[in-house]
Design a protein around this nucleic acid. Structure first.
Lengths: 204, 204
DNA sequence: CAGAAAAATTGCGTGCACGCAAGTTTGCGT
DNA sequence: ACGCAAACTTGCGTGCACGCAATTTTTCTG
């Protein structure tokens, strides 16, 4: 049941790579970090680094978004008696508004560079798969397809909320948008609530 | 009102590039097409090609998906009296099951190469922006955010449906999945119908 | 515990994506 | 019609992503 040595080593390597990527990017600025440096700092060959991450941006960003996927799914699972739509909203808001133990400079650096910002938004899609698993468990395994659609929709809604939120952050306060991240997430996810309710009614 | 010379030239260049990309890929096989060749066939410099497409895969795939975005949005707009949820389903099904005037070999080539398949799935996201516009018009311009969330959710649902559909196409008939593309699209989009109904009720 | 099978790491080679800055074209105001 | 400003094109240079095949490491089986 426990992951086994092989899998644990892989996760350790992955963690070492993303942490090295973020640390070096913060130290020198993202444009002064060569892939070679990240690999060396993590103790692997450059080619191996590319087996874990398809781009430098992904590696840096994943140091921030890494466990969010797992934590969102867990936060939903921790609310088994709550209405599913609410459980998802609360779980997402909880995980996305908790600053965690991160360097606060990380988000600013990411949002101010177009390439990193794009990778950060792409990363919202990563919550779909773990979320689909936990939704399938609540909706009944026969509704796996519905669970996948709902999970992917949540990811899309989160992306829109985050996108609107980081525009003012990185782009100077030119466009004055309504609401904080918390409110944006709630508003975006509220649109999907009726779909969750219907799915839950089908097989509650 | 008419696009103007500048914009029309850009669209012509874009069309020339994607058609050249697809034609060459079909003639020689996708791996035997150099970016240089595509650019030359379209009469632009290689660097210019990269101003239009971020990857060779995008160029090839966009020859197939090009106008689908616009056509889906138009197909929704063409059903103003229909319940919004149904209009979206019918529009999507109509556009995705119409083979169009394409070379039938194109889809097979795309689905059998991992890189092209990935680009093809990514391209489903492109329907979100035009769709969001037309949804905003139906829901009232004050609900632009809802429209964006719904549109992005539709794109996500379509992606899941298409993903399940092309697995058997390219991967040999090992996994026998339930339903054709039409049925997969209907099933995936049905999950979102309650959200559309609620949005329509809010400002019908 | 041995040895084979499966999986991960690595080096190499190739084409590529993209920032940048200079040159060229288009469009608009007067 | 003129000329300026904004937008598009192009060439160059650099680091990079990824297929492939050989090697090393982990796991499985008897």
């Amino acid at each position: 049941m426990t992951p086994g040595l092989r899998e644990r080593k892989k996760q350790a390597t992955r963690a070492a790579l993303r942490e090295a990527a973020l640390r070096l990017a913060l130290e020198r600025g993202p444009d002064q970090v060569r892939v070679e440096d990240i690999a060396a700092a993590a103790g692997v060959a450059p080619r191996t680094y590319n087996n874990y991450f398809a781009s430098r941006e992904q590696a840096i960003v994943s140091a921030v978004t890494a466990d969010r996927e797992r934590r969102v799914a867990e936060a939903v699972a921790a609310r088994p008696q709550m209405r599913l739509a609410d459980a998802v909203v609360e779980a997402v808001v909880e995980q996305y508004t908790d600053p965690g133990e991160q360097d606060p400079r990380a988000l600013l650096m990411i949002t101010s560079r177009p390439a990193l910002r794009a990778a950060y938004l792409e990363a919202t899609a990563d919550i779909a798969a773990p979320l689909a698993d936990v939704l399938a468990r609540r909706l009944g395994e026969t509704h796996g397809e519905s669970a996948r659609v709902l999970a992917a929709s949540v990811a899309a809604a989160v992306r829109i909320a985050v996108e609107g939120w980081i525009r003012p952050l990185g782009g100077g306060g030119l466009v004055v948008p309504t609401g904080s991240l918390r409110e944006r997430l709630r508003a975006a996810l509220a649109v999907l609530a009726p779909a969750f309710d219907a799915a839950e009614r089908r097989e509650g």
